[in-house]
Amino acid sequence: MTVLVYLDHEGGAIRQASRSAIAAASQLGDVDVLVTGPDAADAAKSAAAIPGVKKVLQVTDTTGSSELAEPVAALLADLASGYSHILAASSATAKNVLPRTAALLDVQPIPDIVAINDADTFVRPIYAGSALATVKSADAKKIITVRASSFDPVASEGGNAVIEDVALPAGPGGSTFVATELSKSERPELESARVVVSGGNGMLNEENFKLLEPLADRLGAAIGASRAAVDKGFVSNEYQVGQTGKIVAPELYIAMGISGQIQHLAGMKDSKVIVAVNKDPEAPIFQVADYGIVGDLFTILPQLEAELDKAG
């Protein structure tokens, strides 16, 4: 079986999440990959270096068409005849394109898988992660997106795949790319940030809450808060992480002075790595934290910044 993985890249560098998708694909068969975009040639070189990749298909396109779902979905559908599975990391791009491809192939897609049981059977979260469903597909081809945090990414160097050009089909038309605007905000969005630094009751007041900013700056993190911090007016509502606030699942979640009530945990328990700093060793947050430090956060916070600076 050969599997095609549609890769996301940024300026020619393959995203880590896509390397996780390749790791998932390797469990199913031989792996070919597809890269598109104006700098597809650079991306193809990066992709060719990924161990386990047999062949790289590249679409160099400077018209903006490769930003559109319609032609890319049509391309994937055209390529599908050679593959048993088509995979991609669960990104906004893949979620835009792959279901459309699936429709063209009369296939029900399988989004966000977190485990592969066999070539037809996969595990995926439903109800925002409140349950895990094991589903079996009756389709001859599988169209799959992969939750990156569930698969360790393959290495980025060491392979030597062949590169082939393919052309983007015209697609049905009717859709025109106008512009892409990347977020100018220095802080990432809470819900999509890779790192989140959150403060709770232990921050004591609005002034102190701002002490989280230097740490967040160093980590390129979004700032969040527990409901207690919001209720006491340290920060506004939009920062709230939890059952009634935002649900986040970053790679790293740092909880400063948050006791970890279940309402808060409901909003962040799917984070890949959780760090908690709290002066109460009994705080429930420690029951879910991968790394905990018991102590005064106002002492630990500057130490943490210094250590991060030291390490560069």
Binding site: Q108, K269, G292
Partner: peptide, 24 residues
């Protein structure tokens, strides 16, 4: 339907990790 549900389970509970002594 093309997908059939084999089973549905609760996600595994997170386990407590380790306590560390320093920021370093």
């Amino acid at each position: 339907p093309r997908l059939s549900v084999v089973s549905v389970a609760e996600p595994p509970e997170r386990k407590a990790g380790i306590k560390l002594d320093s920021a370093a």
